[in-house]
Design a protein around this nucleic acid. Structure first.
Lengths: 199, 199
DNA sequence: GCAAAAAGTGCAACAGTTACAAGTTTTGTG
DNA sequence: CACAAAACTTGTAACTGTTGCACTTTTTGC
């Protein structure tokens, strides 16, 4: 008799609630007392679940802070494939990264949040890893767009350099300008016609 | 009986011996049974010291594998400042990285060693961190060489991109070619005369 | 309603790492 | 040579992230 629930389902809703409770509680505690001064046991306690359950939702302590992984890959590929017809790939990626960095530097509690991340090596690291996780996919998207083989080495390099620029940028005093600086270095060499390829 | 030791000093010698014993024992065990299947307690045991002593020599388990950190910064700066007068900075750095990657891919037990590192995320990570640790110094060296302010943003970006290229390369099927591929992308945009600088 | 599936729980344990309060060895000096 | 200070080691216990396990509760589909 619990009909009328096609998509959400009660369980799904509860899970979502628990997940949100966990990540919100965690973030609040982290902001108050520092990432390293809070144990996962405390977080679980505060959110009123067992430690085991917490680790069931978030595979690592760091994952509690960045609960927005899924959208990333989609939007990243979209920046490559969904750009205006006359816009070069790199220009589109530049704009995408600019926006992304800008958003990171100005969210709700952006100031305190960024400070937390930058002051906590484990978190900076994790953020970078989240980006680099999509390295392969981005490389393939770029390759496809340029009509190159999916494992094209230059595309792999480009994807890596660009994604890594994110961590470079957020650690900078002026993130948006740092993104532009990095792209200014990369752009003139793209697409490449070079030594490595012709050796 | 304690004469005849001018420079080294008995203590220094013992320390060096212990250090070498630890890192050699560790590497051997790691190669035999895998990084994650060996505990630091086992290593300490095998080298016949206490765990506390082990952690005294090597701050982390990963550090046991890369016991060659000091030379890195020196050689890196040397590649910038000690190059032939007519050679561009980037070309010198390209050759340096090429050599470095080549050496990594062909040491004594290079094949097994590289496999160990690449199969162990914690180790790949650590290797990258060792390189990035010298980001600032490299940036300043490049800036000095070009007569730019020490905190020049483009130099910071360049240093980061280049050092990060190392991890990109060793993960590649053809590391040396990957270094060249990355430099081929970076080189044409250097030195930059650009948007970010003129905005 | 009910059996199976899914989620949550508490507990114990492991591994890296640190703190601490001893011991032991080496060193420089009188 | 003796000896006190400094440097190094050690054993033990603990903390923290993380995992495995056996068990209970909840939700689901019929």
């Amino acid at each position: 008799m619990t009909s009328s629930n096609a998509d959400p389902g009660r369980r799904e809703r509860k899970k979502a609630a628990t997940r949100r409770a966990l990540s919100e509680t965690a973030l609040q505690l982290f902001l108050e007392r520092g990432f390293d001064n809070i144990t996962v046991r405390e977080i679980a306690e505060a959110a009123d679940v067992s430690t085991t359950t917490l680790m069931n939702y978030f595979p690592t302590k760091e994952a509690l802070v960045f609960d927005l992984d899924d959208e990333l890959e989609r939007s990243l590929v979209e920046a490559v494939t969904g750009r205006a017809p006359d816009m070069p790939v790199l220009e589109s990626l530049r704009r995408y990264m600019r926006e992304r960095v800008k958003r990171a530097a100005s969210g709700r509690h952006a100031d305190r949040f960024m400070k937390l991340v930058l002051d906590t090596p484990a978190l900076s690291d994790h953020w970078r890893k989240i980006w680099l996780r999509h390295e392969q996919v981005l490389a393939e998207a770029v390759a496809a767009e340029l009509g190159r083989p999916a494992d094209d080495m230059a595309c792999a390099a480009l994807a890596h350099l660009i994604l890594d620029a994110f961590s470079l940028a957020i650690q900078s005093a002026d993130p948006v300008r740092m993104i532009d600086t990095a792209f200014d270095i990369i752009e003139p060499g793209w697409p490449p016609t070079n030594r490595a390829a012709t050796d």
